[in-house]
Design a protein around this nucleic acid. Structure first.
Lengths: 193, 193
DNA sequence: ATTATAACATACCGTTCAGTACGTTATAAT
DNA sequence: ATTATAACGTACTGAACGGTATGTTATAAT
C-alpha cells in the first residue's frame, strides 16, 4: 500500500548520469540534480541514497551501456581493421560534433575519484579491463580469419589500443587541431598490421 | 615602506601546487590551502588573487617545470629508442612507487576544467603541444643519427606517443596490474622501429 | 469507507564554502 | 623618532552545500 511513485527511475537516473558526466562529481550540486532530474530532494534520497550512491548508480548505468555499445560497434564489421578504424573515427567525430566535450564518464571518474576512493578505483578499472577484453576478442577474430598475422599478441595489443583510446578521449578535452587526432589514429592503427 | 612579506612566494605556491595536483580544483578548499601553504587567507588573496588565479599560477608553475624535466630526460640518452623507453618506464615506476597516484597535474586539469573554462582549455592544450614538439625533436634527432628510418613521420609519431603517455598516466589512476602497462609500453615503442 | 503507508512538496538543519572587514604589527622612507 | 603603509592574525560575511524533519496527498489493502 502507499502512494505510487510518480517518476520513472530509469529516466531520472539517466538525467543524473548526463549531469555527472558533464560536470563531474564535486561540481554537481544537489540543486543541479533536482532541477535536471525533475524531482525533489527527498525523492532522490529515497530512491537512490546519498549523492555518492546516486553517482555510483549513474556510473554503473553508463559503463554497462557503454560496454554493450562498444561490443556492438566492433561486431558490425567483418573486417577487424575496418572495425577499429571506424570505431576510432566515430569517437573523434562525436566529440568534435558536440559543442562541449564530455569525453567518457568513466575516464572522467578515473581522474576525479579513483585515486581517493577505492570503490571507484575498482569500478573504473574493471570497466577498462572489460573493454580491453572486447578489443582482444575482436583482434583474435582477425587472427582467426587470417586478416591479422598469427604472431600478433592479441592481449598486449588490445591493452595498447585501450590506452590510446583513453589518451585520445582525454586530449580532445583540450580541443587540439583535428589533424592531431587524425595523425594519432593513423599511427596507432598501424599496430594492427 | 610597509611590512616585509614573511613567506616565500615560490614555496607557498609550490605547496598550493602539490595540493591542487593531488585533489583537483573543486575538492580543494581555501582552508585546505591555508593549512598546507602555512599562511593565512588574506595573504593568499593579496599575493595570488582568488582561488582560480592561484590555481592557474600553480598550474603554470607545474607545466613549466614539467616541460623542462621532460626535455632533460629525453636529452639524457644518445639513443633515442633508449631515451623513450627509459622515459616511459620511469613514468610508470614513479606512479607505482607512490601510495596515491596523482598522475599529471595538467592532465587532471584537462579533464576537470578544460571543458568548462576556455583559459584552461588553451593552457592545457598548449602544454601538450609543447611536449609533443619535444618528442618530435627527439625523434628527428634519431632520424638524423640514422637510428630511426628516414621515412618516419616524426610529427605524427610524436603526437601518437603523447596520446599514449596521456592514456598511460590516466589508466594508472585505476591501478591496473603492472603487466597491463608494461605490455602497453612494449607495443607502443614498436612504433619507433 | 476506513486505514495504513509510501511518495510527495516545503521548509528547514548545521556545516562549510569563497571571500573580506578590521584592528594590530612591523618596516621602509622621511 | 615619526609616519605612512603593507603584511599580518582574527573574526566575520552571505551564500551554497549535503542532508533531513515534517506535514500533506494519494493509493493499495482491508
Amino acid at each position: 500500500m502507499g502512494r505510487t511513485r510518480e517518476f520513472d527511475e530509469e529516466k531520472v537516473l539517466d538525467a543524473a548520469m548526463q549531469l555527472f558526466w558533464e560536470k563531474g562529481y564535486e561540481a554537481t550540486s544537489l540543486s543541479d540534480l533536482t532541477s535536471r532530474m525533475g524531482i525533489q530532494r527527498p525523492s532522490i534520497y529515497s530512491a537512490f541514497g546519498d549523492k555518492k550512491e546516486l553517482f555510483e548508480a549513474a556510473l554503473r548505468k553508463y559503463t554497462m551501456s557503454r560496454a554493450s555499445d562498444v561490443r556492438t560497434r566492433l561486431q558490425n564489421h567483418s573486417s577487424v581493421k575496418e572495425a577499429f578504424s571506424t570505431f576510432f573515427e566515430n569517437v573523434v567525430a562525436e566529440e568534435y560534433t558536440k559543442n562541449s566535450s564530455r569525453g567518457c564518464f568513466c575516464i572522467n571518474t578515473m581522474v576525479e575519484l579513483a585515486p581517493h576512493d577505492e570503490k571507484f578505483e575498482i569500478l573504473t578499472r574493471e570497466h577498462q579491463m572489460y573493454l580491453s577484453v572486447i578489443f582482444q576478442e575482436t583482434i583474435e577474430r582477425g587472427i582467426q580469419s587470417g586478416e591479422l598475422e598469427a604472431d600478433v599478441n592479441a592481449k598486449a595489443l588490445s591493452q595498447a589500443l585501450i590506452v590510446s583510446l583513453i589518451g585520445l578521449t582525454v586530449i580532445m578535452k583540450s580541443r587540439p587541431e583535428r589533424s592531431f587526432v587524425s595523425n594519432t589514429i593513423e599511427v596507432i592503427l598501424k599496430l594492427l598490421k
